[in-house]
Design a binder for these strands. Structure first.
Length: 303
RNA sequence: ACGAUCAUCGCCCACU
């Protein structure tokens, strides 16, 4: 049974609701894990009615089932219903509370989110994170900042979210200051820093940060390609590309954007629809209508 | 027997 349950859950995660249901039906004695997995498969993929039916039909509703249902409503924009579910949960845990906070925060009801957050009997890292992200997304940087400093755990993700919110305003002074104030940083933080500099065309600073980084990963290198690309420095971009220890689709696509060259495109080991769009854009820019149409024909997925 | 599988955030890099 438990193997089947895992299957249901993974089908659900990949959006394959039909298969999830088939597996579920093949179980002679589904337990509450099976039911919950089925429920979340529906919930995650927008099948609200099916989710409701599963919820009503299940023999035993655990706090997980309630949580799924809450998330299902929240995801589909039914805040009121989500709230109704929340109010009826027999025994809330942190996750249920977080779910409710998330529901409000994501719908832009940051005040309500805050109220729920304030009423929480206990909070975990996620609770704080959701609030920080919520404030940051709504541009209330002062509150986001307060949240981060009040948070008892040192949480990289919160710090990074706050940093990104500053960076988005284009005020690199504030962004840098918040970066410097961080007590903990991880790769993502560093990557975000060079990315922010690059985007705001502080190319020298970006490269300095890149050099200073304790470790690097593909994303860091990719940003360096883009750095040279924004500087119109094709040779530099190529040099980075050759120098980097490993490459992914994004590396290739970045190089493609820098060079607009179809030879790069042909050499690519993998492509994605973004790659195709990038190539298409480059070809159109050069006015090669025939080529563009040819590309369009060959495109695996048109958007 | 216990455990393991299910719900909430998941933050950084490519086209538009």
């Amino acid at each position: 049974v438990h193997k089947a349950n895992v299957l249901i859950a993974s089908y659900g995660r990949s959006g394959n609701v039909e298969n999830a249901k088939i597996v579920f039906d093949s179980i002679s004695q589904p337990d509450h894990y099976s039911w919950n997995s089925l429920l979340t498969s529906y919930a995650r993929n927008g099948h609200l009615d099916a989710a409701k039916a599963a919820f009503d039909g299940m023999p035993l509703r655990t706090v997980v089932s309630w949580g799924s249902m809450l998330a299902a409503f929240a995801w589909n924009g039914h805040l009121k219903q989500a709230r109704a579910v929340f109010d009826r949960i027999p025994s809330c845990n942190v996750i249920s509370w977080n779910g409710m906070v998330t529901a409000y925060a994501r719908s832009g009801c940051i005040e309500e989110a805050r109220q729920v957050f304030n009423g929480m009997p206990e909070r975990d890292v996620l609770s704080w994170n959701i609030m920080v992200q919520g404030y940051a997304e709504n541009g209330v940087l002062r509150e986001a900042e307060k949240m981060v400093s009040r948070c008892p755990m040192h949480n990289v993700m919160s710090w990074t979210c706050l940093f990104l919110a500053y960076a988005e305003t284009g005020n690199m002074k504030d962004a840098k200051a918040s970066f410097d104030r961080m007590l903990v940083r991880d790769l993502v933080t560093w990557n975000a820093m060079i990315q922010a500099y690059t985007q705001n065309e502080y190319l020298v600073e970006a490269e300095q940060v890149f050099r200073k980084m304790p470790t690097r990963e593909v994303a860091s290198w990719n940003t360096m390609i883009q750095l040279f690309s924004t500087a119109n420095h094709l040779e530099g971009a190529k040099a980075v590309f050759d120098e980097m220890p490993e490459r992914n689709v994004i590396s290739w696509t970045s190089l493609l954007c820098a060079s607009s060259s179809s030879t790069v495109f042909e050499r690519m080991p993998q492509t994605s629809w973004i790659t195709w769009n990038a190539m298409l854009a480059a070809v159109c820019q050069d006015g090669h209508i025939e080529k563009a149409l040819g590309l369009l024909d060959k495109m695996p997925l048109k958007t």
